[in-house]
Protein backbone atom coordinates (compact mmCIF):
# COMPACT_ATOMS: atom_id res chain seq x y z
CA UNK A 1 0.00 0.00 0.00
CA UNK A 2 2.78 2.41 0.93
CA UNK A 3 4.49 1.89 -2.42
CA UNK A 4 1.31 2.85 -4.27
CA UNK A 5 0.88 5.99 -2.20
CA UNK A 6 4.51 6.84 -2.77
CA UNK A 7 4.08 6.54 -6.52
CA UNK A 8 1.18 8.95 -6.31
CA UNK A 9 3.13 11.30 -4.08
CA UNK A 10 6.15 11.26 -6.39
CA UNK A 11 3.99 12.98 -8.95
CA UNK A 12 4.98 10.72 -11.84
CA UNK A 13 2.02 11.52 -14.04
CA UNK A 14 -1.35 9.93 -13.09
CA UNK A 15 -2.89 9.98 -9.62
CA UNK A 16 -3.36 6.47 -8.23
CA UNK A 17 -6.08 5.19 -5.92
CA UNK A 18 -4.69 3.84 -2.67
CA UNK A 19 -4.92 0.04 -2.68
CA UNK A 20 -8.03 -0.95 -0.78
CA UNK A 21 -9.09 -4.60 -0.85
CA UNK A 22 -12.70 -3.54 -0.34
CA UNK A 23 -12.75 -0.97 -3.13
CA UNK A 24 -15.42 -1.77 -5.70
CA UNK A 25 -16.94 -4.67 -3.70
CA UNK A 26 -20.11 -2.67 -3.10
CA UNK A 27 -21.28 0.71 -4.41
CA UNK A 28 -21.40 3.68 -2.06
CA UNK A 29 -25.18 3.70 -2.39
CA UNK A 30 -25.45 0.11 -1.27
CA UNK A 31 -23.19 0.61 1.75
CA UNK A 32 -25.20 3.70 2.68
CA UNK A 33 -28.50 1.82 2.38
CA UNK A 34 -27.18 -1.04 4.50
CA UNK A 35 -25.97 1.35 7.19
CA UNK A 36 -29.40 3.00 7.20
CA UNK A 37 -31.09 -0.41 7.41
CA UNK A 38 -28.82 -1.44 10.30
CA UNK A 39 -29.67 1.65 12.34
CA UNK A 40 -33.35 1.35 11.43
CA UNK A 41 -33.23 -2.26 12.58
CA UNK A 42 -31.87 -0.97 15.89
CA UNK A 43 -34.88 1.38 16.17
CA UNK A 44 -37.29 -1.51 15.66
CA UNK A 45 -35.21 -3.58 18.07
CA UNK A 46 -35.56 -0.84 20.67
CA UNK A 47 -39.34 -0.76 20.30
CA UNK A 48 -39.62 -4.57 20.48
CA UNK A 49 -37.29 -4.57 23.48
CA UNK A 50 -39.48 -2.03 25.30
CA UNK A 51 -42.56 -4.08 24.38
CA UNK A 52 -40.92 -7.23 25.74
CA UNK A 53 -39.99 -5.59 29.03
CA UNK A 54 -43.45 -4.04 29.51
CA UNK A 55 -45.25 -7.26 28.67
CA UNK A 56 -43.10 -9.59 30.73
CA UNK A 57 -43.29 -7.34 33.79
CA UNK A 58 -47.06 -6.81 33.52
CA UNK A 59 -49.50 -8.29 36.04
CA UNK A 60 -51.84 -9.44 33.31
CA UNK A 61 -51.57 -9.39 29.54
CA UNK A 62 -54.27 -10.58 27.12
CA UNK A 63 -53.54 -13.30 24.56
CA UNK A 64 -52.85 -11.10 21.49
CA UNK A 65 -54.49 -13.51 19.05
CA UNK A 66 -57.83 -13.24 20.95
CA UNK A 67 -57.87 -9.45 20.85
CA UNK A 68 -56.26 -8.81 17.46
CA UNK A 69 -57.33 -11.80 15.37
CA UNK A 70 -54.81 -13.57 13.16
CA UNK A 71 -56.59 -14.33 9.89
CA UNK A 72 -56.57 -10.91 8.23
CA UNK A 73 -53.02 -10.20 9.41
CA UNK A 74 -51.85 -13.52 7.97
CA UNK A 75 -53.28 -12.38 4.63
CA UNK A 76 -51.40 -9.06 5.00
CA UNK A 77 -48.21 -10.99 5.81
CA UNK A 78 -48.67 -13.10 2.70
CA UNK A 79 -49.19 -9.90 0.68
CA UNK A 80 -45.85 -8.50 1.83
CA UNK A 81 -44.11 -11.77 0.93
CA UNK A 82 -45.73 -11.58 -2.54
CA UNK A 83 -44.57 -7.98 -2.98
CA UNK A 84 -41.05 -9.03 -1.99
CA UNK A 85 -41.12 -11.58 -4.80
CA UNK A 86 -42.34 -8.99 -7.33
CA UNK A 87 -39.58 -6.66 -6.08
CA UNK A 88 -36.76 -9.14 -6.83
CA UNK A 89 -38.35 -9.72 -10.25
CA UNK A 90 -38.26 -5.94 -10.81
CA UNK A 91 -34.51 -5.86 -10.03
CA UNK A 92 -33.92 -8.75 -12.47
CA UNK A 93 -35.96 -6.91 -15.13
CA UNK A 94 -33.84 -3.77 -14.65
CA UNK A 95 -30.65 -5.82 -14.97
CA UNK A 96 -32.02 -7.43 -18.12
CA UNK A 97 -32.85 -3.92 -19.43
CA UNK A 98 -36.49 -4.96 -19.83
CA UNK A 99 -38.34 -1.69 -19.18
CA UNK A 100 -41.88 -3.02 -19.66
CA UNK A 101 -41.30 -5.85 -17.15
CA UNK A 102 -39.61 -3.44 -14.72
CA UNK A 103 -42.56 -1.04 -14.75
CA UNK A 104 -45.01 -3.94 -14.38
CA UNK A 105 -43.23 -5.58 -11.42
CA UNK A 106 -42.75 -2.23 -9.66
CA UNK A 107 -46.47 -1.59 -10.15
CA UNK A 108 -47.33 -4.96 -8.59
CA UNK A 109 -45.02 -4.20 -5.64
CA UNK A 110 -46.62 -0.79 -5.06
CA UNK A 111 -50.10 -2.35 -5.23
CA UNK A 112 -49.06 -4.93 -2.62
CA UNK A 113 -47.74 -2.24 -0.27
CA UNK A 114 -50.81 -0.03 -0.72
CA UNK A 115 -53.16 -2.96 -0.04
CA UNK A 116 -51.18 -3.78 3.10
CA UNK A 117 -51.72 -0.18 4.29
CA UNK A 118 -55.42 -0.48 3.50
CA UNK A 119 -55.70 -3.66 5.58
CA UNK A 120 -53.85 -1.95 8.43
CA UNK A 121 -56.19 1.06 8.33
CA UNK A 122 -59.21 -1.30 8.38
CA UNK A 123 -57.67 -3.21 11.31
CA UNK A 124 -56.95 -0.03 13.30
CA UNK A 125 -60.50 1.24 12.71
CA UNK A 126 -62.03 -1.95 14.07
CA UNK A 127 -59.64 -2.22 17.01
CA UNK A 128 -60.34 1.36 18.09
CA UNK A 129 -64.05 0.69 17.66
CA UNK A 130 -63.72 -2.40 19.89
CA UNK A 131 -61.96 -0.47 22.65
CA UNK A 132 -58.25 -0.95 21.97
CA UNK A 133 -56.93 2.63 22.12
CA UNK A 134 -53.48 4.12 22.29
CA UNK A 135 -53.92 5.20 25.92
CA UNK A 136 -56.56 2.84 27.31
CA UNK A 137 -57.50 -0.67 26.21
CA UNK A 138 -60.52 -2.87 26.65
CA UNK A 139 -61.76 -6.06 25.05
CA UNK A 140 -65.42 -7.15 24.99
CA UNK A 141 -66.23 -4.37 27.47
CA UNK A 142 -63.66 -5.54 30.03
CA UNK A 143 -60.61 -3.40 30.51
CA UNK A 144 -57.26 -5.03 29.75
CA UNK A 145 -53.70 -3.83 30.33
CA UNK A 146 -53.55 -0.35 28.80
CA UNK A 147 -50.00 -0.93 27.63
CA UNK A 148 -51.34 -3.58 25.26
CA UNK A 149 -52.77 -0.91 22.95
CA UNK A 150 -49.86 1.48 23.47
CA UNK A 151 -47.21 -1.06 22.49
CA UNK A 152 -49.33 -2.46 19.66
CA UNK A 153 -49.85 0.92 17.99
CA UNK A 154 -46.28 2.07 18.65
CA UNK A 155 -44.71 -0.97 16.97
CA UNK A 156 -47.19 -1.58 14.13
CA UNK A 157 -47.56 2.18 13.55
CA UNK A 158 -43.80 2.61 13.17
CA UNK A 159 -43.80 -0.30 10.73
CA UNK A 160 -46.80 1.13 8.86
CA UNK A 161 -44.89 4.39 8.40
CA UNK A 162 -42.09 2.36 6.84
CA UNK A 163 -44.54 0.73 4.44
CA UNK A 164 -45.91 4.18 3.58
CA UNK A 165 -42.45 5.62 2.92
CA UNK A 166 -41.60 2.45 0.98
CA UNK A 167 -44.65 2.95 -1.25
CA UNK A 168 -43.69 6.61 -1.83
CA UNK A 169 -40.06 5.64 -2.52
CA UNK A 170 -41.24 2.89 -4.90
CA UNK A 171 -43.55 5.35 -6.69
CA UNK A 172 -40.61 7.71 -7.31
CA UNK A 173 -38.59 4.82 -8.74
CA UNK A 174 -41.66 3.73 -10.75
CA UNK A 175 -41.77 7.21 -12.38
CA UNK A 176 -38.06 6.95 -13.21
CA UNK A 177 -38.57 3.47 -14.64
CA UNK A 178 -41.31 4.80 -16.92
CA UNK A 179 -38.77 7.30 -18.29
CA UNK A 180 -36.29 4.45 -18.88
CA UNK A 181 -33.72 5.70 -16.34
CA UNK A 182 -32.80 2.28 -14.92
CA UNK A 183 -32.67 0.19 -18.09
CA UNK A 184 -29.67 1.89 -19.73
CA UNK A 185 -27.26 -0.94 -18.93
CA UNK A 186 -24.13 -0.71 -16.79
CA UNK A 187 -24.98 0.12 -13.19
CA UNK A 188 -28.08 2.15 -14.12
CA UNK A 189 -30.28 -0.50 -12.43
CA UNK A 190 -28.70 0.39 -9.06
CA UNK A 191 -31.55 2.63 -7.69
CA UNK A 192 -34.00 -0.26 -8.24
CA UNK A 193 -31.73 -2.56 -6.25
CA UNK A 194 -31.54 0.00 -3.42
CA UNK A 195 -35.32 0.49 -3.16
CA UNK A 196 -35.50 -3.32 -3.20
CA UNK A 197 -33.19 -3.55 -0.18
CA UNK A 198 -35.41 -1.12 1.74
CA UNK A 199 -38.58 -2.96 0.72
CA UNK A 200 -37.23 -6.37 1.76
CA UNK A 201 -36.17 -4.88 5.07
CA UNK A 202 -39.75 -3.71 5.67
CA UNK A 203 -40.91 -7.26 4.89
CA UNK A 204 -38.24 -8.77 7.16
CA UNK A 205 -39.29 -6.54 10.08
CA UNK A 206 -42.95 -7.46 9.57
CA UNK A 207 -42.03 -11.16 9.82
CA UNK A 208 -40.66 -10.45 13.31
CA UNK A 209 -43.48 -8.07 14.30
CA UNK A 210 -46.10 -10.62 13.22
CA UNK A 211 -44.52 -13.21 15.52
CA UNK A 212 -43.84 -11.03 18.56
CA UNK A 213 -46.96 -8.83 18.51
CA UNK A 214 -49.61 -11.16 17.07
CA UNK A 215 -48.62 -14.80 17.54
CA UNK A 216 -46.71 -15.05 20.81
Amino acid sequence: MSSTLQTAADGHGETLEPEDVNFGKATGGKVAMWMFIAQDGMSFGGLLFAYGVLRSSAQEWPIPAEVLGIGLTAVATFLLICSSLSMVFAVLAAQERNQAALVRWLGVTIAGGATFLGIQAYEYYHLVHNGVGFITSSHNGESINNLFGTTFYAVTGFHGLHVLSGVIYLTIIFRGAQKGKYTQGGTSYSPVELVGLFWHFVDLVWILVFTFIYLL
Binding site: N22, K25, A26, K30, V31, W34, M35, I37, A38, G41, M42, F44, G45, G46, L48, F49, G52, S84, M87, V88, G196, L197, H200, F201, D203, L204, I207, F212
Partner: peptide, 29 residues
Protein backbone atom coordinates in the same frame (compact mmCIF):
# COMPACT_ATOMS: atom_id res chain seq x y z
CA UNK B 1 -35.24 -12.79 3.27
CA UNK B 2 -31.86 -11.43 4.43
CA UNK B 3 -29.74 -13.99 2.57
CA UNK B 4 -31.71 -14.47 -0.67
CA UNK B 5 -34.01 -11.49 -1.33
CA UNK B 6 -31.47 -8.97 0.01
CA UNK B 7 -28.65 -10.86 -1.76
CA UNK B 8 -26.50 -11.04 1.36
CA UNK B 9 -25.48 -14.55 0.31
CA UNK B 10 -23.45 -13.05 -2.57
CA UNK B 11 -22.28 -9.90 -0.81
CA UNK B 12 -18.75 -9.25 0.49
CA UNK B 13 -18.31 -10.34 4.10
CA UNK B 14 -17.75 -6.81 5.47
CA UNK B 15 -21.06 -5.65 3.88
CA UNK B 16 -22.80 -8.60 5.53
CA UNK B 17 -21.42 -7.58 8.92
CA UNK B 18 -23.13 -4.19 8.63
CA UNK B 19 -26.41 -6.06 8.21
CA UNK B 20 -25.67 -8.34 11.19
CA UNK B 21 -25.37 -5.51 13.74
CA UNK B 22 -29.11 -5.27 14.68
CA UNK B 23 -28.97 -8.93 15.80
CA UNK B 24 -27.70 -7.45 19.06
CA UNK B 25 -31.25 -6.23 19.72
CA UNK B 26 -32.56 -9.72 18.97
CA UNK B 27 -30.28 -11.09 21.68
CA UNK B 28 -31.82 -8.62 24.14
CA UNK B 29 -35.28 -9.94 23.24
Amino acid sequence: VFMYFMHMKNEAKWVRWIGYTPIYMGMAV
